[in-house]
Nucleic acid binder design. Structure first.
Length: 420
RNA sequence: GUGGCUGUGGCCUAAUGGUUAAGGCUCCUGACUGUGACUCAGGCAACUGUGGGUUCGAGUCCCACCAGUCACCCCA
């Protein structure tokens, strides 16, 4: 047992897994840029208040999942549990409201939540995040959803389910919650203990209770869509019209509620099977009141976050292939001190013209060639006394087992010709 | 925070309560002196998660703790 181990809920992303990460992050960034998004990087930690206000007191994230501490200056600091609040803070602080609207931003990096880890759940996790600020039109909601769609499609996922709902707005949601509470009050004796707490503390959450006993009560519960105001209804209808016209399959899910306080109108998630009990690989929605809440001028926004670990898990579960970055094609082996000096020059010569090459650092020629093979080189360049005397190197194809004598000065040309 | 399961070299796995914990993979070295993969031979590497207890004797049984894992809560 190693003396030191990873902190609970963290992950070492080993070289063998890096191709997944590079592929997913590159794909997500490409799609976002194709939609006109610019990258923004904000600090990994913020003043605690940014999240406490932004995410919302009463949410699980703020109540029990934040990594908070006092720094040496006595400031209350929290490792970001999500991107949106920090990005909104940056938008306000940097006067980004003067940028041409809508402002489209994406980010990627780690976020932190103090939870008990399980399949697809970690304390440090990576997210890809995108936001559209300053646009009330449902086209912004649509574009956010399309990005998620395109990323997963481009990666090669299948059997994904898009879940869609509307959570109303400050105008209509309070009324709906009253209907919901009334309904639950009638069936109070039939619901689980957790729901008895939820209906007061976080009423929408009763809708996604998984307990068997609560299912009939949920099924007969009033639906948000039936109680939204005209504005929210029109917004939702327009978004759905776009999705329907594009033929994007989605499931209307009246039970889809999200754990963050700031959502208004549209909420959506992307579900997949294959990562244990966790099915959401992506989630997002509209948050029209957030920027104002954080001290900015009233600005609508919509965004989403995708979990990278879950995407990696899913790619493995679905056997989605990923491109493997190629090894440097050349491995340089040598015999003797004089040849080693020359081998170093060959190494430099190849790198000057952009040909990837490694040089043996020790071992017999046999051992050096074994290294060449293990490292996935396509060619071994061998230089010894014989070659030195003639101004040649032996260029051996590891795949074919053939080799030829090549003059020093022509080595890069010959290799280039063979690898292209 | 709660509950179930698990814990033997870097990885996988073996060992009726009984000698110096066995094997496979990986890694390294070598097989007539300058040639990889396949084969063969050898080598490195574990006080069996930690601490107690039961026993003449514990990797094996019991307890605690720790860690991992899965699930709940909730979310990516």
């Amino acid at each position: 047992m190693a003396k030191f181990t990873r902190p609970t809920g963290t992950l070492d992303i080993l070289p063998e897994d890096q191709p997944y990460w590079e592929y997913i992050l590159a794909c997500a960034a490409t799609v976002a840029r194709d939609y006109g998004f610019a990258r923004i990087d904000v600090p990994i930690f913020e003043t605690t208040e940014v999240f406490a206000r932004g995410v919302g007191a009463g949410t699980d994230i703020v109540d029990k999942e934040m990594y908070s501490f006092k720094d040496k200056g006595g400031n209350d600091i929290t490792l970001r549990p999500e991107f949106t609040a920090g990005v909104m803070r940056a938008y306000i602080e940097n006067g980004m409201h003067v940028l041409p609207k809508p402002v489209k931003l994406y980010s990627t990096g780690p976020v932190f939540r103090y939870e008990r880890p399980q399949a697809g759940r970690y304390r440090q996790l990576y997210q890809f995040n995108a936001e559209i600020l300053g646009e009330q039109n449902p086209l912004a909601d649509l574009e956010i959803m399309l990005i998620a769609w395109d990323i997963y499609a481009r990666l090669g996922f299948t059997n994904l389910a898009f879940q869609l709902n509307t959570t109303g707005c400050p105008v209509c949601r309070p009324g709906y919650i009253e209907h919901l509470r009334a309904h639950y009050h009638v069936h109070y004796s039939k619901i689980c203990d957790d729901c008895k707490v939820r209906i007061d503390k976080n009423p929408l959450r009763v809708l996604d209770c998984k307990r068997e006993q609560c299912q009939p009560v949920i099924a007969s519960a009033p639906k948000m869509v039936d109680h939204v105001c005209d504005d929210c209804a029109a917004h939702f209808a327009e978004l759905r019209a776009y999705l329907d016209d594009l033929g994007k399959p989605y499931t209307l899910n009246h039970r889809l509620v999200r754990g963050l306080d700031y959502y208004t109108k549209t909420v959506f998630e992307v579900w997949a099977e294959g990562i244990g009990a966790q099915s959401a690989i992506c989630g997002g929605g509209r948050y029209d009141g957030l920027i104002e809440l954080l001290g900015g001028s009233p600005t609508p926004g919509v965004g989403f976050a995708a979990g990278i670990e879950r995407a990696v898990l899913l790619m493995k579960a679905q056997n989605v292939p990923v491109p493997i970055p190629p090894s440097p094609p050349v491995f340089i082996a040598y015999l003797g001190d004089a040849a080693r000096m020359h081998a170093v020059r060959l190494l430099a010569q190849l790198h000057e013209v952009g040909i990837g090459a490694q040089i043996a650092m020790s071992g017999s020629l046999k051992s050096q060639l074994r290294q060449a093979d293990k490292r996935g080189a396509r060619f071994a360049v061998i230089i010894g006394e014989d070659e030195m005397a003639q101004g040649l190197v032996t260029l051996r194809s590891l795949a074919l087992g053939t080799q030829e004598a090549v003059p020093f000065v022509l080595l890069d040309d010959v290799i280039r010709r063979q690898i292209t």
